Simulated assay, not measured.
Amino acid sequence: MGIDHLFWAIASVALGPIIGSFIALAAQRMPLGRPVAVSRSACDHCGRTLGPLELVPIVSYLVLRGRCRTCGEPIGARHLAVELAAAGLALWAALVLSGPAVLIGSILAWQLLLLALLDAEHFWLPRVLTLPLIGSGLALAAALGVEPLFHHALGAAIGYLALSVIGFAYRRLRGRIGLGGGDAWLAAGAGAWTGWIGLPSVLVIAALSGILALLVARLAGRRVAADTPTPFGVFLALGVWLTWLYGPLGL
């Protein structure tokens, strides 16, 4: 492992919990229409504004043993889980990629993590997040040259159109919404990052992982009706990550 790779790996993993803390906060506040970066964090029980030493990712939770320093009420482990997930995704990228690509992969993973959280918890893929995903993918492609930019822009267009058509057809045939509009924009982000050649792999991974999740839920005894909403964006995000990290299936 070279010094260059070690630097990017350590920097990305160290940045992970900080980004994860922001992701957890954004996923909690955005659906409520609350500002993400302006208002200070406070205890949900006693309302006391938290100090800087209580906001150190991972460390503060462990030192305080998961409880508010003032009222002693338990603090949910959700923030800790997201911080660890963000660091883990950066480590995953460091184990597969090298050099600055580690940070680029981490940035993709963190964008997908926030989108997956919002879809899993609120069935919501806001355009304020999917558009930057498209933009960052196209910006990376543009840095590689005109031809990569063309393939990735084409992928973004195909991804959006493909899921829009599928969603429209489903509504006409079944009389209810099967895919939300946010899924189409996320698919555009998938095409922007993986190019048109990676889109089939993204969709295959998303579909198979969605089916697997449904089977696991049923084996666990959960009753899942045919019209039960499914956060397909979670599985799309997984497909984007695996395809970008390892390349299209069969190639």
Results as ranks from 00 to 15, higher is better:
H5N: 13
G181F: 01
T243D: 12
L115T: 05
L199N: 10
L112S: 06
L117H: 05
V63C: 12
S106K: 04
A14R: 03
L140I: 08
V204I: 12
G210A: 02
L50V: 12
A190R: 02
L15I: 03
Y246D: 14
A184F: 05
Y170M: 06
H79A: 14
L115A: 07
P200L: 01
L238V: 09
A14V: 03
L6A: 15
G182I: 00
L133E: 09
M1P: 13
G135V: 00
G33R: 04
S60N: 03
V146C: 13
D4G: 06
H5Y: 03
G47I: 03
W8D: 14
P200W: 00
L64F: 09
L97A: 02
G88E: 07
A37E: 09
T130P: 11
H45Y: 12
L212S: 13
D227Q: 12
F168D: 14
P148W: 02
A162Y: 01
L154F: 04
L91P: 08
A77V: 06
A77C: 09
W8A: 10
V128S: 15
G210K: 02
G20I: 00
L236V: 08
R67N: 04
Q111L: 06
W110Y: 06
G51S: 12
T130Y: 03
V216C: 11
W244S: 14
G250Y: 03
M1L: 06
L242S: 15
L62T: 12
G135D: 07
G135M: 03
R218I: 08
E73C: 11
L236E: 10
V128K: 12
P231D: 10
A81H: 11
L89Q: 09
A9C: 04
